[in-house]
Every structure is written in C-alpha cells, then in structure tokens.
Amino acid sequence: MNESTVDDSMELSEGHVTDKIRACLDGELAPDEAARVRAHCARCRACHRAWTEIENLYRILESDTGAEPLRPVWPGVRERIGEPRRGLARFPFAVGASAAAAAGLLLGLLLGSVGETLGSRAESSWSEVGTLLTDSGTSLDDLYLSGLANGGESQ
C-alpha cells in the first residue's frame, strides 16, 4: 500500500475498518468489500498503520518455512495397516476405568493424608491433656466424678 496517498482527514470523516483488515488480508472478504477496505486504508492513516502492522507480522510468520518429515511416512503406515490400535485406545472403556481408578486412588491418598494429620493432631491434644492432668495431680476419675457432680451426662 502506498504511503503517499494517506490522508489524515480520513480518520475523522469515515469509520475505520481495522476490524476488517485481517479478514481482507486473509482473503476472507467478498471482492467489493475487500476493495472498499483497501481504498479506505489507502487514505486513512490509522487504518493504513494497522494494515502495515498486520502485513509485517504476517511477513515475520512466513519466515518460518516449516520442516520436512524426518522420513517418509508411508512405510511405517504400511507396516501398521490392519494392526489393532495401539494400547488403551482400542479399549475406550478401559481408559475411563483407569481414569476413575486413578482419581479414586488420588482421593484416597488425599483423604488418608488429611485423616493422618487430624489423627496426629487429636493424639497430640490427648497427650497435652494427659500432661496437664499429671501436672495438676488430677486423674481421669476425678474429672468424671466432677462432671457428674456438675450435672453432666456420663457417656
């Protein structure tokens, strides 16, 4: 697109077409619409800039020309035609069952870990109660009797 034809006044007098530039460059617009977009971009500085930016980006992307296959694909395909599909892909139900089993195992491990933590905390709490009782010279029987005396339930 020719820079010399760009007119700043177009930015005010006409709606921009920036949302259509990429589609235009990608060949996705009908010929008449593409012509309108091109004509606008030739005169509007903002749209011209957007057009150039996209064009530059495309040029950079095109510098990646891609790679050739490492070897022809056919011999490997030929060898495997008629073979049953590899592994679990042949048994979709087995994939689902394996996933469910793995999820169950993970959940089990998680719950086990949480339970273990809670258990060790409870054990630690009982140990602390024991230490307090020993330090204060009170037995569990004393506590039980004291509870009954206060109207507590003996469970």
């Binding site: 790679a67 050739e68 296959p69 694909v73 056919w74």
Partner: peptide, 20 residues
C-alpha cells in the same frame, strides 16, 4: 492400498508441518 499410499504421499508434508 495403492490409493491410500497416494493419499499419504500427497498429504504427509502438510500434516507433518502442522503437527511439528
């Protein structure tokens, strides 16, 4: 199989390029 071979040879580069 012959037709399939032609198909593979026609499309192996685009498919490889896409996957790569």
């Amino acid at each position: 199989e012959g037709a399939f071979r032609l198909l593979v040879e026609r499309w192996e580069r685009p498919v490889f390029g896409f996957l790569e």
